[in-house]
Amino acid sequence: MNTAAVRFKGVSRHYGSVRAVDEVDLSIAEGEFFAMLGPSGSGKTTCLRLIAGFDQPTAGEITIFGEDTRGVPPYKRHVNTVFQDYALFPHMNVLDNVAYGLMIAGMPKAERHKRAEGALELVALPGFGGRKPSELSGGQRQRVALARALINEPRVLLLDEPLGALDLKLREQMQQELKDLQRKLGITFIFVTHDQGEALSMADRVAVFNDGKIVQIGKPEDVYYRPEVPFVADFVGSSNVLPPHVVEKIAGKWTHASVRPEAVSLVDAGLGVDGLHATVHSTAFLGTATRVSLDLDGFSMVALLPKGTRIPETGEQVHVKWSPEDLHLMDTA
């Protein structure tokens, strides 16, 4: 394997007694589209800021293409960032915003403006150079921020929840465009998000953060279908987590297990079919399916019933069933 684009070795960032990032080990390959996924306060954005150099680790070592980053200021790192609030310079027009990195590097005006025009074409905003950032829509600002970060030809591009401020339709469109752009440019993208759908659909690999630690790292399918800890099952897949005492009865092993809501089926309690006994807590119609919340003995589950199945009433007694292959045991954790 080549030198990793970014590598964390036992990296921690503590603020007083708060462990924002706690003993994180991580290796991101060159050209990879890597997502850091987790709830707010889980340490993912701090990790990004450590890579960019806006923050320094309290312990551990971060290398970018094999070079130690200790004491290296942000302006000497070959990484660029797309900020959550875009951080476009309000006193400059779009062209000067995009050309800022080249201006700092001392490139003559005519040439840097030509390059900036090229970068604007890359993000599908040709001819917008003369406008002020305040005259652009949210999606357009996002593209300008992207062009501005890419013009310095970084080896790693950091994206901090870049789609968070966009509406749903635009977000889906930008997800596709970002993915295409990353393939075209071949540079490493590190993408921070709290949206599991975004992480799963875009990334080559996903690291799931919780309480400053990486709880699972792997391909989107692995994280989604084969969660290693209950947190991942719940946060990434909104999966049902079965407690060990239930799993022991079903599978004979003392461990947590997960079942996807769409794999769960409900059977009338009176039919005498074997299964877990449950009471229907509530139902919600979602369009293509109906979500049924169930109360079981000491825990709860969710079933996603496709159109056409009989939807039980609230308070009805049912049996919960699934195929044995849909039960995922978390005995690796």
């Binding site: 806006f54 942000p74 302006y75 660029n80 900020f83 310079f89 590097a105």
Partner: peptide, 10 residues
């Protein structure tokens, strides 16, 4: 983040 953006860009 304007200051950070500027530093980030070199």
């Amino acid at each position: 983040s304007l200051v950070e953006a500027s530093m980030d860009l070199g």
